[in-house]
Amino acid sequence: MTSSSSPSRKALSKIACNRLQKELAEWQLSPPAGFKHKVSDNLQRWVIEVIGAPGTLYAGETYQLQVDFPEHYPMEAPQVIFLNPAPMHPHIYSNGHICLDILYDSWSPAMTVSSVCISILSMLSSSTAKQRPQDNDRYVRNCRNGRSPKETRWWFHDDKV
């Protein structure tokens, strides 16, 4: 479907397709609060609008999440990044990559797009300062060739946020 954007990406398997269709139907029936799925005919790439929760640093601000599903979703985690501009957050790099364990090591096939979205919003909401990660520049330089965040060896250091 979208092989033009990244030739290495394979089409969704039958099971992934099936499950994503059901997730989308469920989402349309009852979307998680604070999120809007941007309508498109591409099942393999969702763009989701995130609205900062009231009473937090990001209240009223809108960001866009891009969720790409691998061939073997949900056995394999989706790739989730913020589209430019990414929110200023100690765990979000300026290229949109998110340091969040459930997107990588701690992914479980029992999770869904909607549960991932809620985790990300919760991560945003609990932030106390709008700032980039300390190693932002170095990391972003390393990713210049369009590396996926899933290829990063993440070191999850902060379990508070």
Partner: peptide, 16 residues
């Protein structure tokens, strides 16, 4: 009031 004071996202949305 709710738009200014609520901290938890889901709760505040509920209230709204």
């Amino acid at each position: 009031e709710t738009s200014s004071s609520a901290t938890c996202q889901t709760t505040s949305f509920d209230v709204l």
